[in-house]
């Protein structure tokens, strides 16, 4: 069973706020989903060496400079900027 405290800790890691009034409902939801995930917890599987899902290896690029974006393009979608920098103001 996942507790309220655990939900809060997880939410903190995920940078999500959980309003007090939603905590009960969310904990219940999570417990239901986790119980569902738990159906594989009891399955015995032998450990294996790591292997890529798609079996590929060594996809590499050469060390050659490619044109990038202009600062204008980099910042185009930002809500707040100051000249060429993204900005997080102290408060808003």
């Amino acid at each position: 069973m996942v507790t309220h405290e655990e939900i809060r800790a997880i939410a903190n890691l995920a940078k999500l706020q959980v309003p007090d009034e939603e905590l009960d409902g969310l904990t219940e939801d999570m417990n239901e989903i986790i119980a569902f995930a738990d159906t594989i917890a009891s399955v015995q599987v032998e450990d294996e060496a790591y292997e890529d899902v798609n079996g590929l290896s060594n996809v590499l690029r050469e060390d050659v400079v490619q044109p990038g974006l202009s600062a204008e393009e980099v910042l185009q979608n930002a809500r707040d900027r100051d000249e060429n920098s993204f900005v997080v103001k102290k408060h808003a």
Binding site: D63, V65, Q66, P67, G68, A71, V74, N84
Partner: peptide, 25 residues
Amino acid sequence: KTKIFCGCSTEFGGEPNTHCCPVCI
């Protein structure tokens, strides 16, 4: 010469956000 996952230059300094591409931002 370039960044680890994209073709942007690793040159030190420069105006902010001028050695960037969609990948490294």
